[in-house]
Design a protein around this nucleic acid. Structure first.
Length: 229
DNA sequence: AACTTATCCAACCGCCGCTAC
DNA sequence: AGTAGCGGCGGTTGGATAAGT
């Protein structure tokens, strides 16, 4: 283990203590329970192992799909993801992701370019973005492609009908990003090659996925990874 | 059978945000 | 405003075990 393993006696003392005094006040637990463990260790042991209704064992297909979906939407916020999976702990979800899913996903993502993770929609690859803080809703994607020596392709990504991104694919890489806002004085407000930009409270950064925070899966469904798990 | 390598997962560590003072 | 103490979180570690040679 990563540290000193808990004994049955320690588990019993901790369980008894939490049942008697309730969760919280973890700084008092080692003293109340008579344990030679720090507050964090006690809390973790309770949350990940001793708490009632904890589900152990292998993850079901439904759980795996939900984890993937939630991870796309929330990132590495394991406690939030675990809260959607009854009986599963954040540590379990995190371990499962690190041991099983991240490797499989990396295999899929890194097929062509290790710096770009492809997202597919209607068989059209559009690259990926990360939206931090409040995520904007993806409303539509349109694209055009020209078949030339470099096979250049352009995709427009529209966010809440207010803001749009333009991706250009040169060869096998998505390199250029053009960010546009509402038209002003007939000129489209454009920042070329922006690695990231902010719109109101939303920061959108190149290199991740477009995400929605409002549980509106309808938009996201079109962007689900084309994965072979 | 003996050894090496890979995988899994419980536990630890350091950081962050919140609250009280 | 600054600080200490706390709970909570995500990243990392390392021992146990399985799989491979």
């Amino acid at each position: 283990m990563g540290g000193v393993a808990w004994t049955e006696e320690e588990d019993h003392l901790l369980k008894k203590c939490v049942e008697q005094y309730g969760e919280g006040k973890w700084h008092r637990v080692p003293l109340l329970a008579g344990l030679n463990r720090c507050r964090k260790s006690c809390r973790l042991r309770w949350l990940n192992y001793l708490r009632p209704n904890i589900r152990r064992g292998t993850f079901t297909d439904e759980e795996v799909l939900l984890i993937i979906k939630l991870h796309n939407n929330l990132g590495n916020r394991w406690s939030l993801i675990a809260s959607r999976l009854p009986g599963r702990t954040a540590n379990d979800v995190k371990n499962y992701w690190n041991c099983h899913l991240s490797k499989k996903l990396n295999k899929v993502h890194n097929k062509d370019d290790p710096t770009i993770s492809p997202v597919t929609t209607s068989n059209q690859q559009v690259g990926r973005f990360t939206a931090h803080h409040q995520f904007q809703t993806l409303t539509s994607i349109s694209g055009s492609s020209s078949t030339g020596p470099h096979e250049e392709q352009t995709s427009m990504i529209h966010l809440e009908d207010m803001y749009s991104l333009e991706l250009k694919q040169v060869g096998s890489n998505w390199k250029q990003i053009v960010c546009g806002g509402e038209e002003e004085d007939g000129q489209n407000e454009v920042n070329k090659f922006a690695p990231e930009f902010e719109y109101e409270d939303t920061k959108i950064k190149a290199g991740g996925e477009i995400r929605s925070m409002d549980n509106n899966w309808g938009c996201w469904e079109d962007l689900i990874f084309d994965m072979d798990l």
